[in-house]
Design a protein around this nucleic acid. Structure first.
Lengths: 190, 190
DNA sequence: GTCTATACGAAGATAGAC
DNA sequence: GTCTATCTTCGTATAGAC
């Protein structure tokens, strides 16, 4: 594994982490260099497409990391317990960052017009999360239609709650939302 | 009403409209000038605090406009019908803008660190919306605790669904989420 | 691969004339 | 109040040496 690959991976990882706090447009190459320790001179060697390519790859990478966490949670717990776990995970992210860090996929989604490739990566991430959740809900006996709708509500509700939590600098919206979502899933698949 | 006031109001309105598509950081004074037709030279006359002040005032203004629409819907319809109306309104906004426009309050919330005053205005707007919704839910017989939690889920769910809709360039997430939210409110207050 | 230097544009903000 | 001109900073991106 050549060091070159390491630098590239580190830049992607750093970009994704910085997107959570500063957004895509708000994260400069300088920020990524400083955070990753990668060398300045090789940016366009690794990312020929410039910032658009880095943004898209970082968004895709972040989407896959979050997907893996979601799949793990659903493999070990049932859906309501997995939702409670998401509550805990996002609570940690919010509190550790003093409410500066949100979801990098949301950042890429709301700046879609400026970085279309990153937006498309965000759309794909959202779709995969919904698919995984809907599958778990179907396994609980829900119809495909209902499973898809509740999966959409879970993803949208948690993402929206993270936005509210950042604005209000409080994890209360997140706890309220995940609590309701857990109750709803219990009720719908009872 | 002197023309000066008109120019100031127009700049605030234009800024809020542009925030929906480009975010706070992505909207420059040049953009606001071009959109509002306001004179260049008087920016710092009207907004002594520069862009931070314009961003905060535009966010506050947008929050109040949306609040008024929400209050109107709740005054005329019951909660599930009001949620259906929000679905229609946001569908129009998304489709008319070819999925470029989202919610300006979300834009201010996710760029919180760069514009703290705008973020605080976003937090206040979210809190007011939740208050109004929770009041309507209490009127349907829900306990204050439950009303607050469902109100949080409605706000977070719809805001999250708008983010998903922009990324996927489809109103389907919004329809699914508002459908589930309407069902949930019916069930919870039956 | 990585460096330095630089081109080029756009942003926010200020100064001073009118 | 509004204009024009300008300062400063910062961003992406490129060129060419090593």
């Amino acid at each position: 594994m050549p060091r070159q690959t390491d630098a590239r991976e580190r830049m992607i990882r750093s970009a994704a982490l910085l997107f959570r706090e500063r957004g895509v447009d708000g994260t400069s190459f300088n920020d990524v260099i400083a955070h990753s320790g990668a060398p300045r001179g090789s940016i366009y060697h690794h990312f020929e497409g410039g910032k658009a390519q880095l943004a898209a790859e970082a968004t895709q990478w972040a989407g896959e990391v979050i997907l893996a966490g979601l799949a793990d949670a659903l493999a070990e717990d049932d859906v309501p317990a997995a939702i409670a776990r998401l509550d805990e995970q996002w609570t940690r992210t919010l509190e550790r960052s003093d409410f500066r860090a949100g979801c990098p996929i949301v950042a890429a989604a709301v700046e879609g017009d400026r970085e279309p490739a990153a937006r498309d990566a965000a759309a794909a991430a959202f779709a995969r999360w919904q698919d995984v959740l809907a599958g778990a809900l179907r396994a609980r006996g829900l119809t495909p239609e209902r499973a898809s709708s509740i999966a959409a509500l879970v993803v949208a509700g948690i993402e929206g709650a993270i936005v509210l939590a950042r604005a209000q600098r409080s994890t209360e919206p997140l706890h309220r939302v995940t609590g309701e979502l857990g109750r709803l899933v219990e009720l719908a698949s009872a």
